[in-house]
Design a protein around this nucleic acid. Sequence first.
DNA 1: CTTCTGTCTATTGTAGATAAAAGACAGAAG
DNA 2: CTTCTGTCTTTTATCTACAATAGACAGAAG
Lengths: 292, 292
Amino acid sequence: MAKQNTVFKDAFNRCLELFAETATLPSEPELGQALGVSRTTVRAILTRCEELSLIAWDKRSKTVLRNPEPSDYFPSEETDSLAERIERSFMRRILAGGAEPGMQINELELAREIGTGTTSVREFLIRFSRFGLIEKRPNSHWVLKGFTREFALELTEVREMFELRSAARFVSLPEEDPAWEELRTIEAVHREILAAIDERYGEFSELDERLHLLVHKSSSNRFIIDFYDVIAIVFHYHYQWNKANARERNARALEEHLDYIAALQSRDPMSAEQACRRHLKSARETLLQSIP
Amino acid sequence: MAKQNTVFKDAFNRCLELFAETATLPSEPELGQALGVSRTTVRAILTRCEELSLIAWDKRSKTVLRNPEPSDYFPSEETDSLAERIERSFMRRILAGGAEPGMQINELELAREIGTGTTSVREFLIRFSRFGLIEKRPNSHWVLKGFTREFALELTEVREMFELRSAARFVSLPEEDPAWEELRTIEAVHREILAAIDERYGEFSELDERLHLLVHKSSSNRFIIDFYDVIAIVFHYHYQWNKANARERNARALEEHLDYIAALQSRDPMSAEQACRRHLKSARETLLQSIP
DNA sequence: CTTCTGTCTATTGTAGATAAAAGACAGAAG
DNA sequence: CTTCTGTCTTTTATCTACAATAGACAGAAG
């Protein structure tokens, strides 16, 4: 098992969705473009489609023979990349499981538990180390620094610096910048969700990320934008983990977002700064409350 | 060749230095402590010392028989860890060699050139990616983003945010904080170097890192402190690469540092901020001048 | 009863191998 | 003459293996 063929399986599944739209499939390079994979993978997909009698394929003609059935798809467990599986397992262990700061992290043990080789785990840990939650002792184990109060405070301190700076840039973006359009879209989604808050409050997490990432992006600074990954992953898993009072919390945050959005749209630096500060302050408090 | 024994070789060399101080060596755990290695490595070192008739070793008694000669040491090329070698080769390629932005980076080729396995190169690139100079195309190559003007501006923007914040913290450190002592030491070294600037201007680079790292550390924020790695590596290689007018540049920077140090020692936030801004501004300009 | 040494085990760092995926090139089809 | 397909080569992602290194434990020495 040198390499998982998850790219193939995932692209295959996505390719079946395209069948609904057209009776004849486009050329191989075009398909590759649409699915975001190379021609090699496209041909593997087409070959499998042919084997399953989903299409008739002869050189340039690719005719859809029948609509795909659920059994044609690969199960979703098989389409996740190894890196995603490792991340989930790891985060579950350190966030959900009682993981005390100072705990040792063992590459071999993690690999065995996840059912994978050590190399992948190792590379994951290296990438993950930039989130500041783990640290390497050279020639020895990793140490879990823990999702502690200090961590949250350090994270939010930088977040606030970066977001205030980005918000200040945002209000000075030229009228024709696509960010304004995206901001209006995000605003509309906010209103939709608020209108049906009882059913849709769960969609907040994703929307939150979308808004803040948009703001951070206007900094045009790769370090600021990259840092948003740290924030996103922490909040992502934090929302999954801590669902107490989610409805009220999210409703309040949505209102704050609307204020923030309005302030950005006013193009007034001062009120944007104030709205930004207010929201970040309550976001910080929410995060801190969930930490013992 | 599963693992290079550079830890052993480097510790062995450092161990020979200890011979000058004592006629009998301390216990194994103590030696391990002093050299920063495990007992396993200590015993390997002692075994080799015995083989070379450098010491007589019987259980607890370890008597030095003769002083080490140059030929006893391992050559310095063999004591560098693989990671260090890869970093140097890579930086030489991308800074010195005409490396245009957008260039593809090939793991296999790099590994062959450095004479190492792909795994190590790969892990290096993953670690290095946080410096914002390269980017991964999944399932495909890395792309060099280049040491460009934008890079320098983005880097210094964050640097200035972080250092201003850290300097503000610094002035409010309590009297007994060891940072004040370290600051006085750094100040003294500055004066020494300035007094003999023509011969010693080359020592500035290291001192610069020491001062700024001290300031950043007072933020007590892991993200700010970690970010200093990015700054340090960029300036480190930048100094090596760009030696034009080094004497004058360093002399001016030393003067600025002294102002900055005095402002910090005054405990006055306003003057610390001003001195910090002044120095960072000229550091930025120096960096930008070296980029075409 | 603390600290050391001898011995053994477990884990990390690195190389090498292999399937998956990307990508290059020439000739075919429009 | 542009875009496609067939074929082939190169590179990446991942596993496995193994030496270097760390670390554990029991008995020895003080």
